[in-house]
Simulated scan of single mutants.
Amino acid sequence: MHQPIGVFDSGYGGLTILREIVRKLPEYDYMYLGDNARTPYGTRSFETVYQYTLECVRHLFARGCRLVVLACNTASAKALRNIQQLDLPLMTEMGPDGPDRRVLGVIRPTTEVIGNYSQSGHVGILATRGTVTSESYVVEIEKFFPGLNVFQEACPMWVPLVENGEFASPGADYFVKQHINRLIDKSPIIDTLLLACTHYPLLIDKIRQAAPVGVTIVSQGEIIADSLTDYLQRHPILEEQCSKHGQRTFLTTDSTVDFDRQAAIFYGESIRSVQLTL
């Protein structure tokens, strides 16, 4: 039976997470769903993001996924808790003979380790406005590193720069430098920058150039891949339900031509997607 691990994002960014997961766990089947027809999620209300994310999670479940990773910071911030607490209990038959379904996000695994990167105790979060407004990182980091000082900066131009193919252009330098400077102005002793949006790794060269010397820049891909590995080891019944044929399936709610062209940039290799209607 085909029971892939589902990976969801509002667009292309989650492919940077999937790339690292596949590198770490290549034997599993994966199904990626990008809701490109309704992206971006970062500027939408909590209720809208929740409803859109829930629709996509249900679709992945209907296609055989038992485990879905929300590889999207905005969806993790605005929808994950409701889905886990309100919707999963209605969709899941717990126990060894039932379809044990789980939904995971990217915020908690990141906040469990981010404090380990900092020597000064001052960490900067670079994210979409939706993620910053949700305060999810601030709240979660407090649970694991209560003494850590967290400073946030919303970067509304960064996702459009990436999705319009301008992430390597000279024009991107201005917007990257602007937000790095604003964040460092909040605390000059910030020594760790978390890229809390899956699009931002494509800007990492410019972020490194703009950041002060010695600042550690953390992207989420490897963290999530390690966390998923650990999760599967701790949940053997669920792990056994995941099929292992090394298959990759890519779904998009928008044009497959556009998706395939852009996805190759994020995923690092060419792909062929299938369009779906929710």
Results as ranks from 00 to 15, higher is better:
residue 158 W to R: 00
residue 183 L to D: 00
residue 157 M to R: 14
residue 141 I to W: 00
residue 191 D to S: 02
residue 158 W to V: 01
residue 138 V to A: 12
residue 193 L to Y: 05
residue 187 S to W: 11
residue 141 I to S: 00
residue 119 Q to V: 13
residue 193 L to K: 03
residue 156 P to W: 13
residue 78 K to E: 15
residue 164 N to V: 08
residue 193 L to W: 02
residue 203 L to D: 11
residue 173 D to P: 03
residue 73 N to P: 15
residue 150 V to Q: 00
residue 170 P to D: 05
residue 193 L to E: 12
residue 164 N to L: 09
residue 184 I to R: 00
residue 119 Q to A: 13
residue 177 K to P: 05
residue 118 S to M: 13
residue 182 R to D: 08
residue 121 G to K: 09
residue 122 H to G: 03
residue 186 K to S: 03
residue 196 A to V: 12
residue 82 N to H: 08
residue 176 V to G: 10
residue 90 L to R: 15
residue 118 S to G: 12
residue 111 T to F: 02
residue 89 P to K: 08
residue 114 I to S: 08
residue 197 C to G: 10
residue 198 T to L: 01
residue 72 C to I: 06
residue 198 T to P: 14
residue 98 G to Q: 12
residue 103 V to I: 13
residue 178 Q to C: 10
residue 116 N to Y: 14
residue 73 N to R: 00
residue 149 N to L: 15
residue 125 I to A: 00
residue 106 V to Y: 02
residue 132 V to P: 01
residue 94 M to Y: 14
residue 200 Y to M: 02
residue 101 R to I: 09
residue 108 R to Y: 00
residue 190 I to F: 03
residue 122 H to V: 09
residue 104 L to I: 10
residue 138 V to T: 15
residue 152 Q to P: 04
residue 142 E to F: 09
residue 88 L to D: 07
residue 161 L to C: 03
residue 188 P to H: 09
residue 104 L to C: 04
residue 81 R to Q: 09
residue 191 D to V: 04
residue 192 T to V: 13
residue 123 V to N: 00
residue 178 Q to V: 08
residue 88 L to W: 11
residue 164 N to E: 10
residue 174 Y to F: 07
residue 78 K to A: 12
residue 187 S to Q: 04
residue 95 G to L: 12
residue 137 Y to R: 08
residue 74 T to G: 11
residue 167 F to W: 04
residue 176 V to N: 00
residue 114 I to T: 10
residue 100 D to P: 09
residue 154 A to R: 09
residue 110 T to I: 03
residue 142 E to P: 01
residue 196 A to K: 04
residue 107 I to R: 09
residue 186 K to Q: 12
residue 192 T to I: 05
residue 152 Q to L: 12
residue 185 D to W: 02
residue 76 S to D: 07
residue 75 A to P: 08
residue 76 S to A: 04
residue 95 G to V: 06
residue 129 R to Q: 15
residue 97 D to S: 15
residue 89 P to Y: 01
residue 147 G to V: 10
residue 77 A to N: 01
residue 104 L to S: 13
residue 186 K to I: 03
residue 164 N to H: 03
residue 124 G to D: 09
residue 172 A to G: 01
residue 123 V to I: 08
residue 142 E to A: 10
residue 123 V to S: 04
residue 189 I to D: 15
residue 164 N to Q: 02
residue 197 C to H: 09
